[in-house]
Design a binder for these strands. Structure first.
Lengths: 251, 251
DNA sequence: TTACATTGCGTCAAAATAACACACATACCC
DNA sequence: GGGTATGTGTGTTATTTTGACGCAATGTAA
């Protein structure tokens, strides 16, 4: 991807980039999709540039799709980052040398980039991490064990998680993070993981079912070393409705 | 301002702009500060460009300060707009002709601009609308009577108001919109105006005082044709604390 | 068959919310 | 000065939501 851009700067909007915080849920962990490039020793968020003839939202969809093969997924813009020094020293000598970019073309990269942050919620099992090139490493990493990231990507990730936590009170979450059939305890674990706190089982059940977005199935989870929990699906229609109208009214 | 930029494109980040939705409160109306430029017949949000050596947040502060003379005010980034065609046709012939901009320099303007939206809450009486030049018109306009705006500025304004409404449940509002001393009914009017719905007087009082950000003064408002309402101030310290920690916890 | 872990359902007190009643203060009218 | 209109301060009550638990039921593993 970077190579294509280097060959054709003029097809991309200068000074603007997209960064995606892609969340997945697995093993009771909230995971983030991260990339390690060959030309440096740090991890980064999957990102991209904005083609001149594409909306920024579309460019974000492209990034997500390139990396996970997924479409039609929950993807939301949450903030834009534009400190002067944010990509100072980056796309510096190491990167430019690696790609053998001449100094003149390099200026395109060394200018300050304003990056637009998006976060996505995807089904861990359906989203298959996809390398941009053979030298790249792309991996799901537990959000609690995120290594050092380039630039201000840690800040971006933190802000994404913070936004997600707040939006948990305004919208239902789960449809995009869980498999089609799931149990209430699984859904609760998801909430607990995102919020990083324990919730009461019984109160959670009551609150979540009261929203009216769950369909209880005539089916139980098997192969569990205890009472088999019931399986549920989301009522897509009601889910979308609640997503649109919001949960808490407050005032 | 535009002229300065035209003379010195290279001092500003290409393709990025700032737009501010500046809210004030007066006569029980939520007002928005709008600008009418001489070279076109529509109104627009106050905005500006981003100096190469300035953070985007700083650039937003500059816009706000230029237009209201105010500093240290509530100013928050809420969304970034970057549809391909958003400034299509704008900064078009009319504008370029007006400023006698040569075609080559004009390209700087006719490219797609990604604009970062900020909204501000300011004290209507302290914020004095300030023209950018003598031909400009700048005015407080009731948000319910906003005329046709350029580009996607209406969309930006709507999104700002929508964000404000949601954030009303997460944070206290009023410190930046009301004079130092105010009455509970005035504060309630502010909430009602923002939310565009009636609230119960007595329940509002209970809820707002329970937050613990108000100081009741030993003073009453005078010159009212009814029982004189008590005056209050915000407890700045507690207010800031609640602003930081948020109101509703939800889950 | 029993022990164990975890689920499903229910209870109860406390807190928050919604709906409403009444007394009070000030200006204005007559 | 008495009555009226308007809008304020305070209180009451029923309802709903929340938080903190108890306990029986269920499936696996020993």
């Amino acid at each position: 991807m970077l190579k294509g851009i280097i060959l054709n700067n003029e097809n991309y909007q200068a000074g603007i980039s997209i960064d995606c915080v892609i969340f997945g849920f697995h093993d009771n962990q909230l995971k983030v999709l991260l990339i390690k490039t060959p030309y440096e020793n740090k991890w980064s968020l999957p990102g991209g540039f904005v083609p001149i003839h594409e909306d920024i939202d579309t460019a974000a969809v492209t990034v997500l799709n390139e990396r996970t093969g997924m479409q039609g997924i929950f993807l939301r813009q949450f903030a834009t980052f534009g400190r002067v020094k944010r990509n100072d020293r980056h796309f510096g000598k190491a990167v430019l040398d690696h790609f053998k970019i001449p100094e003149e073309a390099g200026k395109w990269f060394t200018q300050r980039f304003v990056t637009i942050g998006y976060y996505a919620l995807v089904d861990f099992l359906k989203a298959v991490p996809h390398k941009g090139n053979t030298q790249e490493i792309i991996e799901w990493i537990d959000h609690k064990e995120v290594p050092e990231l380039i630039l201000d990507h840690k800040e971006i990730l933190d802000k994404a998680l913070h936004t997600l936590r707040i939006e948990l009170n305004l919208m239902p979450v789960g449809y995009n993070l869980l498999p089609e059939k799931f149990t209430i305890p699984e859904l609760q674990k998801l909430y607990e993981t995102i919020l990083d706190k324990k919730l009461d089982r019984r109160n959670f059940l009551r609150k979540i079912t009261n929203i009216g977005i769950l369909n209880k199935l005539d089916e139980k989870k098997s192969n569990v070393a205890h009472k088999a929990p019931n399986l549920y699906t989301f009522d897509k229609e009601k889910y979308e409705e609640v997503l649109k109208n919001g949960l808490n009214q407050g005032w």
